[in-house]
Amino acid sequence: MPKTLYTIYVVELSKRVFTANAKFRKANPHYHGVLECLYVGMTSKTPKERFMQHKTGHRSKKGYKIASKIVETYGTYLRPSLYNHIDPFFTRTEALKAEEQIALELRREGYAVWSN
């Protein structure tokens, strides 16, 4: 059985998220509105499949919501140019750590970023 791989993906969010969502604003106090608002996530699915789960408010088999409300409400499209260069990860732990690092790097570049 092939080993599960985890990939990082980036979704562009409508800039409305910055004015409409206080938690997003608080997470991005140095954002100046020049670059885009982004969501960084990791998945064992393809980025396209995961994005569609977010947009449809997907729930797990046990009924837990596994879609990000921010992406469901404000997600516009995937930004492959910001993640295609990142190799997949063999463990969920590695992918979560990378997700956090990439979100931090993008924030340093001037993007407003949300990640879980």
Rank of each mutant, 00 (worst) to 15 (best):
T73D: 00
G41Q: 12
R59V: 10
K45P: 03
R16W: 13
V10P: 03
I102C: 00
V11T: 05
L13R: 02
A22V: 14
E109W: 13
R59M: 06
L38C: 06
L82E: 11
V34Q: 12
L5C: 07
D87A: 13
L35S: 02
G41C: 09
E100S: 15
A27W: 00
Y31N: 06
Y83F: 14
L106N: 04
T93Y: 13
S81C: 12
Y31H: 07
T93V: 12
P2K: 08
R59C: 07
D87F: 12
T19M: 12
P47L: 01
Y31P: 08
P47D: 00
N84K: 08
Y83D: 08
R25D: 04
V40L: 10
P2A: 06
W114A: 05
F24S: 07
Y77V: 11
P47T: 03
E12D: 07
H58Y: 14
F89Q: 02
T43Q: 02
P88Y: 00
F89E: 01
R108T: 09
R25N: 00
A27G: 06
V113G: 08
V34C: 02
V34L: 10
K62V: 15
G41Y: 04
A103K: 04
L104M: 13
Y83G: 09
G75P: 04
L82A: 08
N116H: 14
T46N: 06
Y9G: 03
A67H: 06
I102Q: 04
V113E: 10
T4C: 11
Y77E: 14
E94C: 10
G33M: 06
A67C: 05
Y31Q: 03
K97P: 03
G57F: 06
I8H: 04
N21L: 12
G75D: 03
T56Q: 14
E105H: 11
E100C: 07
E99L: 03
L5S: 12
N21M: 06
L35N: 12
A112C: 07
R107Q: 08
E12S: 09
R25V: 01
T19N: 13
K55V: 00
Q101S: 15
P47C: 02
G57M: 00
F90C: 10
T56I: 10
K61F: 11
L82I: 00
F24W: 07
L35Y: 14
G110D: 04
P2E: 12
N116M: 13
H32E: 15
